[in-house]
Nucleic acid binder design. Sequence first.
DNA 1: ACCCTGACCCAGG
DNA 2: ACCTGGGCCAGGG
Length: 117
Amino acid sequence: MKPTASAAPEPRNFFQDVHEVVRLIPAGRVSTYGTIAHYLGARHGARTVGYAMMAAHADASIPAHRVVNRLGHLTGRMHFATPTAMQEALEAEGVRVDTDRVLDFDKLFWDPAVELG
DNA sequence: ACCCTGACCCAGG
DNA sequence: ACCTGGGCCAGGG
């Protein structure tokens, strides 16, 4: 018989996995493309996480502003409603930003492999 | 089913 | 310190 909806594992693609991890980043903390890629499996590149974040733009429940590049730079800022919206969203939760870079990046860095076990 | 596009990161010369 | 190449996923035309 045809597998029921509950029996069939939902077809999760990599983008959805990325979105799920991003939702877990606490307010006031930041993570990076490469970290998330590594957490989800070595065969995925950081670039692909970037692709997933573009797709995330449609979903307001994903805190896309908490994902920056490995240097703490706000590389995704141009994809927000305004070029300053990403920085403003971070500052609204207490993250200091200067010239498109997160200050105290090492301290605020959130690694799913560490925080989630 | 092919072509294009797009928030990255590391290794090597 | 600069540039290059390789890896990588999903949606739309």
